[in-house]
């Protein structure tokens, strides 16, 4: 870990301003991912701006019947929120499928969205990784990549985004609210927060330098049942091999791409009357597995069909 300086932000505006002014600055809230990465010097911030105590943890209804979740709300608080559990159960189920109770108590909503990949080659700094050092190459591409992406990957990066919460948010058509260093607020869909890797896998999100996520906003839930299913090697505290969030006719997949993957082709097929199995098969026509992760194609097919059935049963 490299020496760094630290400040506790006094307001969201001040935090965003400070982040833009200080070279190498990073926000820190729960730190559950950032500090691990700092210990390995994968992240080497010169300055940390602590946003964990800003008044951004409220969970409150919106005028249009949705829910606004403050960026600093803990994962545990969101998962346990009565409104979330009643109206957005897919979100609650997704959150408790991630990490461990200790991590969820500490981790924030924005931090969960911005967690970095769990690709083992990203973590082993003796191996080439285009995320850590652009142009270095990708050790995972020809490596032990059983858990690599099957959608939207590139030769430069086959890593997945491993948030569970984000998959549910994408299925729910949630939006991110962010504040720029110049004090400009903006809002955009969570599905547009993360980039596909392309040739620049080190560029991971839509956020500009210093821009601070202040909230996630859920529209009213879609009609129909909701469910979240995650497949993993271990029953708890394990990254998924694949996951699926279903909210009515809206479907998103996790751990299959560099971002939470909205299954638009499957949704279109469902809307047109296809069976769940037919619908997910349509989505998987676009999958490009690499060999060791071939199993993810039938896994996603079976998991998604079962989850849609399950959600329909709950609707």
């Amino acid at each position: 870990m490299r020496p760094f300086t630290y400040e506790r932000a006094t307001s969201a505006e001040a935090a965003a301003r400070a982040a833009a002014l200080t070279p190498g600055a990073r926000f820190i809230a729960g730190g559950t991912n950032l500090i691990d990465l700092m210990k390995l010097e994968i992240e080497t911030p010169a300055h940390l701006i602590d946003v964990s105590r800003l008044p951004m943890a409220a969970i409150e209804p919106t005028a249009v019947g949705g829910l606004r979740i403050g960026a600093a709300a803990s994962n545990s608080a969101v998962a346990a929120d009565a409104t979330v559990r009643a109206r957005y159960p897919v979100l609650s189920e997704a959150i408790v499928a991630g990490g461990s109770p200790q991590l969820r108590n500490k981790a924030s909503v924005a931090g969960n969205l911005l967690q970095r990949t769990r690709c083992p080659y990203f973590y082993d700094t003796t191996k080439p990784c285009n995320k850590r050092r652009p142009g270095a190459g990708c050790a995972a591409l020809e490596g032990l990549n059983r858990n690599a992406a099957i959608f939207g990957a590139s030769r430069a990066c086959i890593a997945t985004h491993t948030s569970d919460m984000a998959v549910a948010l994408v299925a729910l058509d949630a939006r991110v609210e962010a504040l720029s260093p110049s004090g400009q607020p903006r809002s955009f869909p969570v599905s547009e927060l993360h980039y596909l890797p392309g040739d620049t896998p080190h560029l991971e999100t839509e956020l500009i330098p210093g821009e601070l996520i202040t909230a996630v906003v859920l529209p009213p839930p879609p009609a129909g049942g909701q469910t979240y299913r995650k497949v993993r090697d271990r029953a708890s505290y394990a990254g998924g091999l694949a996951s699926v969030a279903v909210a009515g006719g809206q479907v998103a997949l996790g751990m299959v791409a560099h971002k939470p993957w909205r299954a638009s082709a499957a949704e279109g097929a469902l809307a047109a009357g296809a069976s769940p199995a037919e619908a997910i098969a349509r989505e998987l026509e676009g999958a490009s597995p690499l060999g060791r992760n071939d199993f993810k194609v039938p896994l996603v097919a079976r998991l998604t069909a079962a989850a849609i059935d399950d959600a329909n049963g709950r609707g």
Binding site: S100, P120, Y123, D124, K127, A139, G143, R234, S236, Y237
Partner: peptide, 19 residues
């Protein structure tokens, strides 16, 4: 990873002992 002679799993989030 036979290219590098190293183990893939290097922490307890990746090397899975039971919970």
């Amino acid at each position: 990873d036979v290219r590098y002679g190293s183990f893939l799993n290097q922490d307890l989030a990746q090397y899975l002992v039971p919970v």
